[in-house]
Nucleic acid binder design. Structure first.
Lengths: 113, 113
DNA sequence: AAATCATTCAACTTATCGGTTGAGTAATTT
DNA sequence: AAATTACTCAACCGATAAGTTGAATGATTT
């Protein structure tokens, strides 16, 4: 695992740092979607949604194929895995602190999150 | 896990989307550090580093205690865990695509990353 | 008490972000 | 052929980011 590509990680984490884009990924986890379908759930112009898709693509989280006039997108799990790999580095650390972790999660749960 | 706090996730992923801050977290994983120690490795003004620490704090990834004139920081694994929990949602998805994943990681490794 | 150290804060610059609108292109439908 | 659909691109806006510098604060050292 040595040293993950910094720019890739920047792009992936940046792409994930937006709730609209995270929701798009959740959509894509159910199956392929056109750019239009990805944008539809949001109160946002088409062009706006298209930009979000582009950010996901830039991060390598999503790829697209042009099928006629529709651009069909699919999830690229490899990029997600690189983020996961980075986080996993800390897994030992936080599992040594499980008490705090559990307390936090319970606190969030009881706040109804 | 229902629905993780969106703002928290925004802040956490945003904090992680910067190589300076990721390095700071790696430092903190080895033990507590003052703000000065955290900033020292970087070609950057003190105030600049201090801002990065603040971003980590805003995300809940780091907490600080003032000890005399030094501000001592430590890693807060709970926030990292919330990012991890989000990613884990996709674990099933990408483990169904393990071939692509492995190929990607090998490709990166052979590029000497 | 003066100097120094660890740090923040405020002000500023430049760049990027998230959104918009309006126009352009290419594929499909009528 | 004309209209519609699915999209991108370019230009713009306001907000935020990342960095700087310079001054302020508060704790320690001399």
């Amino acid at each position: 695992m040595v040293e993950l590509d910094d720019e890739r990680l920047d792009a992936v984490f940046h792409a994930l740092a937006d709730s609209t884009r995270r929701t798009m990924l959740q959509l894509l986890a159910q199956g392929e979607c056109s750019v239009g379908e990805l944008g539809a759930p949001f109160r946002m112009s088409f062009a706006g949604a298209s930009k979000h898709v582009k950010a996901l693509e830039r991060a390598g989280l999503v790829s697209r194929t042009v099928q006629g006039r529709a651009h069909v997108c699919r999830l690229e799990p490899a990029a997600l895995a690189s983020a996961n790999a980075w986080l996993r580095y800390y897994e030992g650390f936080w599992s040594n602190h499980l008490d705090a972790l559990e307390k936090e999660l319970r606190r969030e749960a009881s706040r109804g999150k």
